[in-house]
Design a protein around this nucleic acid. Structure first.
Lengths: 126, 126
DNA sequence: CATGGTGTATTAAGTGATTAATACACGAGG
DNA sequence: CCTCGTGTATTAATCACTTAATACACCATG
């Protein structure tokens, strides 16, 4: 459970983001139980309602599901998981293109920069 | 003067963004006079203070300058302009890498998506 | 049967930033 | 000299959103 919060985005958004990443990459497997609202709140030192809000939105999106009074679980719908992953990718691409388009810069150049940045961050993880 | 405002970001931020793009691409040339605060506000139908805030930040960043009571002008420092352009590119790259890194996706794939998106938007402009 | 852990719902508070209102100082030009 | 258009500064209002407080229903378990 490695979340580092920035103070720019709302907490619940960052929580959602984290879970989406974990689910999209398979770090949280389909059907796997996730922490209860209160447990997550305790671990992350946030208000339980903030955890609830994040979970609620994820549930409405079909990313997790809840049965009875038990902690929620990751959806078993692997197609849904795949589509969420794809959406995350497309959102990033859209935002990037939208930011880069008005500036005059070649595709090759930005690809080079992206590649460099990716490698750089990989190095940082050694 | 083609600005379309979204309601997600603050007005003054979007104004700054617009001018940065224009200056970075050379659409606004070094030394060129830009609209007065009130004129801009009138054109964009925003409050003059909002225009002022945008201009003030741009001036603090060295993007524009003001002499006496005359409308501000684009900086003549072409190195500054080049560096601002580079910063915009790097910010976009950083944001993109940050968003894409936690997901498991190959460089080739995202490059393909970016290329497709760029072409798609180019088509839309026909 | 009561206690503690679930999820859930409603409402209030706080917080922070953006935007707007207003006023002031300066200078060119009629 | 007065008016109009500049830039500038200070303060207030607004506004949306996030976060928190509180309470309720359910159920398993000792």
């Amino acid at each position: 459970m490695n979340i580092t919060f920035n103070k720019r985005d709302p907490l619940y958004v960052q929580v959602i983001r984290y879970f989406k990443e974990q689910i999209a990459t398979g770090a949280f497997e389909p059907g796997e139980e996730i922490p209860s609202r209160r447990e997550l709140a305790s671990k992350l030192k946030i208000n339980p309602n903030t955890a609830q809000r994040a979970y609620k939105e994820m549930e409405e999106e079909g990313l997790i599901y809840t049965e009875g009074n038990n902690p929620s679980k990751v959806t078993k719908d692997i197609e849904k998981i795949a589509s969420v992953r794809q959406e995350m990718i497309m959102e990033a691409v859209d935002a990037f293109v939208h930011a880069i388009r008005p500036i005059n810069v070649s595709l090759d150049e930005v690809v080079g920069l992206i590649e460099a940045k990716l490698n750089e961050e990989q190095e940082g993880r050694k």
